[in-house]
Design a protein around this nucleic acid. Structure first.
Length: 198
DNA sequence: TCGACGATGACCT
DNA sequence: GGTCATCGTCGAA
């Protein structure tokens, strides 16, 4: 029994709760006609204008960040370090720029295609652990920015695998955020080896 | 227009 | 554990 998460799920206001709740859900993509999916094992919450680590801190509204102000249920994809595409899910209602970064998944379907995209010979934890690796394995790029995550290319299903043990800890790579860098807004599944722990 | 830099990963020792 | 590739975005000028 599984079902696609409805738009109302992503429009909830508690982004930290949602980030934790997404652990164990199945993220699927059908890009270039190729179906791949994996169980979400690691996420981070970014809480809009009040969060120093968030791109929309203090209501910053630019061509890049405007998608975060849209109602929940769409993708926010952007380029980091000129190389890596990072996949976020926009949450909360219109005007509230919350988002959840998907940092790692555990591959379940289309593994041969993921290996091909990642140019790897065999399955190991580096295939889909780390936000840049996740997007590469699933085929997500900047052209999927603003794409619905309830759509024909990207969607998320509840496979009732929510009884997993979830660890809360601090976010990664946001030293510039000062005190907000200490918030325990990163979540990962301690039962899975497909996480990008540091 | 231009310079600085980042929600990283790969590869080296 | 350390280095470095690589480019779009942002904000200052």
């Amino acid at each position: 029994m599984s079902k696609i998460l409805p738009k109302a799920f992503f429009e909830q206001s508690d982004v930290v709760f949602l980030a934790k709740n997404l652990i164990g859900k199945q993220l699927s993509t059908k890009i270039d006609g190729i179906f791949t999916s994996g169980i979400i094992t690691e996420t981070e919450a970014y809480a809009g204008s009040g969060d120093k680590a968030c791109h929309a801190h203090l209501g910053r509204f630019t061509k890049r960040t405007k998608v975060m102000y849209e109602p929940g249920g769409i993708a926010y994809v952007y380029l980091c370090y000129g190389i890596h595409h990072l996949f976020n899910i926009v949450t909360n209602t219109k005007g509230n720029a919350d988002a959840i970064l998907i940092r790692a998944v555990e591959p379940t379907d289309g593994i041969p295609h993921m290996l091909e995209r990642r140019k790897k010979q065999k399955l190991d934890k580096t295939l889909t652990s780390g936000p840049g690796n996740v997007t590469q394995a699933l085929g997500i790029t900047k052209q999927h920015n603003e794409e619905s995550v309830l759509g024909e290319y990207i969607w998320i299903e509840d496979h009732n695998r929510n009884s997993r043990r979830i660890k809360e800890t601090t976010r990664i790579g946001i030293d510039y955020a000062g005190k907000d860098a200490e918030l325990p807004w990163r979540f990962y599944d301690t039962n899975s080896s497909f996480v990008s722990v540091k």
